[in-house]
Design a protein around this nucleic acid. Sequence first.
DNA 1: CTGAAAGCGCTTACAG
DNA 2: CTGAAAGCGCTTACAG
Lengths: 366, 366
Amino acid sequence: MRRRPQITIDVVAAEAGVSASTVSHVLNGRADTARISQSTSERVRDAARRLGYTPNHAARSLRRQRTGVVTVLAWRLSSPFFADIATGVRNVAQRHGFQVAVIDAGALDREVEIRALASLRNGICDGVVVATGTHSRRGPNTDALLELAASGTPVSLVLDRSPDPAIPAIDVDHLGGSYLATKHLLELGHRRIAHFTFADSPLEPDAPGSPAARFLGYRQAFAELGLEPDPAWLVRGGREIEGGRTMAHGLFARFPNPDQRPTAIAAFNDRTAIGVIRGCYEAGITVPEEIAVIGFHDIPTARYTTPALTTIGHPLIELGEMAADSLFVLLQGGEVAERDRTVPVSLVVRESCGAQRKNGLGGLHA
Amino acid sequence: MRRRPQITIDVVAAEAGVSASTVSHVLNGRADTARISQSTSERVRDAARRLGYTPNHAARSLRRQRTGVVTVLAWRLSSPFFADIATGVRNVAQRHGFQVAVIDAGALDREVEIRALASLRNGICDGVVVATGTHSRRGPNTDALLELAASGTPVSLVLDRSPDPAIPAIDVDHLGGSYLATKHLLELGHRRIAHFTFADSPLEPDAPGSPAARFLGYRQAFAELGLEPDPAWLVRGGREIEGGRTMAHGLFARFPNPDQRPTAIAAFNDRTAIGVIRGCYEAGITVPEEIAVIGFHDIPTARYTTPALTTIGHPLIELGEMAADSLFVLLQGGEVAERDRTVPVSLVVRESCGAQRKNGLGGLHA
DNA sequence: CTGAAAGCGCTTACAG
DNA sequence: CTGAAAGCGCTTACAG
């Protein structure tokens, strides 16, 4: 385990009795275009293997002017859908012979994202898939993103909206998904449906960002039946599981009388929904019998909650693959074909809205 | 958004009317040791800012012979405790002015880990924290790990056992934790306690790896009461949530008669426990009333399951920090002080074993 | 107080 | 069929 001296290409060349150029040619598969003889190639390969030679990354990157690495900037490392997205990026990167590294964008702390974006400007990687979901409204972090792109590092967004024609983005159909979710609840007979969303996002119909789109889809589903949701059913709160739990308790506090309380909750996403289920459990309100809960995203754990989550699904891994595909188009000098693309979503019926049970054991809702 | 021409140090030097050396001195905070005048420094800094200069990472790394990056090799990106560990590594790395990148080790696919380990040998980073938990038994992946260390890249393990005196490792007290968990169940009156573990791990008392240590702790808790667990209570299966779910169903199939069925399950970890809770729900067996479930690791979501998970806890972020501390000792030329370190664990009582309720509302178990 | 020069370890166009 | 040489963009010991 003693640290060996550094094995450079010159050491290999000396060992094989050839020049460094020859070693480089052989090891980079240019043996025939450089017309290196069979036997020389063998000798070089043997020497390299014997010495455990690995070309130095920094030197190679400097010379080639590319690193062979793409980076995924993740909203939060522990975010469940991000892991699937990274897997999608990896699939594509592998096909192109690239490695992928993941770095954390600090979740709610935009400063971390800004620093990360700035640190990527030095050519440490050849391109970055940004999965922070923070660029639909322009802020200093988006400035940092544009700086990165302007400095020559191709960038592609996923689960977000493009801030610039030169930057491709892919997102899911938030409006359609929210519409589907609400419609599912309406069809199950629910009329008082709560809509949970983030406290810090604008909700005007023309506002940017997924919360506004989701709210619109929710209202559209009601409108289709000639109905309008009560503004008191709109609950705004924090992110993650804890946010969902807190919003659930907030809703129950707002509606102490069970007869007026919403009978269903459209949570902002699956994590929120998990928190909502937990909040209901704490309040002694059973899901789905007393209240239905629907999520969004269909994260891998959604099928394992009790009750299993009814949610809006879309292909997470493919989302990563599509974002990576766009990135590689740019990497190869191509142009952005379509600035914002949208992936369709579908309803995934499990147990948390009672529909499964309804079909199997008879209806529980009017 | 047009891609700008590359701004090198020479461009900055020209703009400021000085040499590249001067720019380098100023920008690296060596202005005074190199005795650069106040005004020149200003001029250089201005020019750099104006041009948006960022030192090229590859060139700098090549010259300095270090990259300023440490890598975390994660068993699986979506693994919940790994995210916390990466956070711990980040905390420490930040203090040292290092960036951290995360790469995926492919979970059960050891080939991915081997390739990743090999790809890190080219000096793409200065050190790596390995969080794959796969090195307590020696296999080809451990060979790749030793190769990496031998090639001069410092390595530190977390949630694993060290395969070599030159490699520090930090793990939690698996034996003690399992003992605590089992003892908790015994104290609650349970006598038929199932132990869930992985199918592919040796369980002999002296076998390497956490499953053997856990099994030992389980038996020790029984032994303390002069008891011995029935071998039929040992269930072996797959990983992740699905593994837990499957093992739960396996147990119920093995014990069709509820009067003989174990009244408690010590799951291998929190993910397994989540699967077990799900399996119980599917089988119509209520937790904790009809069966108690205990986990291991206290992942962030453990408090949000229904019922909330009683589990064995330990500081996940600090585990990452400690592994990173060891890495930086090596990075600075230090020696491994202690090959294998162990972090203590503690019992985290929530709802899934009924203890919470027992205290509050009277006992449910004999 | 500042600059010229060497060199980190590669790759590649070119010469022979 | 193979090698000498230039150069990628930095940093740093050294000279003045």
